[in-house]
């Protein structure tokens, strides 16, 4: 016959039950007297040095690169507190993005964060700082990073209303991203920006050169560019401002 595993409740001495009750009440009272945990914003520290990161990656820098980005991305959301991006130290943020990019140069993630997340803050200086980071890193690998600079150019034009900056970025795409895989619209951005800035003559020459060079093969694109060229030529003859 199977032995009963549990004895009766009556076997438990009353002192044990009483002490347990007292201990439970004391625990609840002790906790009730403690202050509630307080959320504290933590400053973003510098990322570890490149050599240390390479050593710590144990031969798998791609994984560590993403880990750094996730740490950075989650930084604005600390337990119990949300830090606005504009309050972050952008020099430090750029150091983290740089560290991640150094570990995995093929990754688009750091530039995506820079161009589309950290550059959206309502602080012009910080926006420019982030767009400048995108520009500098574009120069390291223009063929694979042109899209982020194109985005930066659009941001400079529409968010910052800084046409010279937008032109600088667009011109850099035209100058450095000459690979055929880079779409022609990206390489033509600078022409339309010049036209918008009133540099119609320069824009007309560049557009004419582009069409004459034979690099544009799509018939629709050729027709569109011809139409823009015609508009520029008409605008030069007439004092009326051209439409965009």
């Amino acid at each position: 016959m199977r032995k009963n595993q549990q004895r009766s409740w009556r076997e438990i001495p009353g002192s044990v039950v009483t002490l347990m009750g007292i201990a439970l009440i004391l625990q609840l009272a002790w906790h009730a007297n403690q202050p509630r945990p307080l959320a504290k914003a933590e400053d973003l520290g510098a990322p570890p040095p490149a050599l240390a990161l390479h050593a710590a990656s144990l031969g798998d820098p791609v994984f560590l690169s993403y880990l750094l980005l996730l740490r950075l991305q989650a930084f604005d959301n600390q337990p119990g507190i949300s830090i606005p991006f504009k309050d972050l130290d952008y020099a430090r943020v750029i150091e983290w993005l740089d560290a991640s990019l150094a570990l995995d140069p093929a990754s688009q993630y750091p530039l995506l964060l820079a161009a589309t997340v950290y550059s959206q803050v309502p602080d012009e200086a910080k926006r420019k700082e982030m767009l400048d980071f995108v520009y500098r890193r574009f120069l390291d690998d223009p063929v694979h990073r042109w899209q982020w600079l194109a985005h930066a150019s659009v941001m400079a034009k529409h968010r910052l209303n800084d046409l010279p900056l937008a032109l600088k970025y667009a011109q850099a795409i035209a100058d450095h991203a000459s690979d055929p895989t880079v779409p022609s619209w990206a390489r033509q951005m600078h022409i339309f920006l010049r036209a918008e800035m009133g540099e119609r003559e320069a824009a007309r020459i560049l557009l004419g050169g582009l069409l004459a060079g034979g690099t544009v093969r799509d018939p629709n694109e050729t027709a569109f560019l011809l139409q823009r060229l015609q508009e520029l030529e008409n605008a030069e003859k007439s004092p009326v401002e051209p439409k965009n």
């Binding site: 009963n4 595993q5 004895r7 438990i12 044990v16 002490l19 201990a23 625990q27």
Partner: peptide, 23 residues
């Protein structure tokens, strides 16, 4: 120290509770 004493007392009492009921 106070927290430790209270919590250890609670756990030991709980352990005793189960130990006394064991057959």
């Amino acid at each position: 120290l106070g927290q430790t004493l209270v919590y250890v007392l609670l756990l030991i009492c709980a352990a005793l509770f189960d130990f006394y009921r064991k057959n």
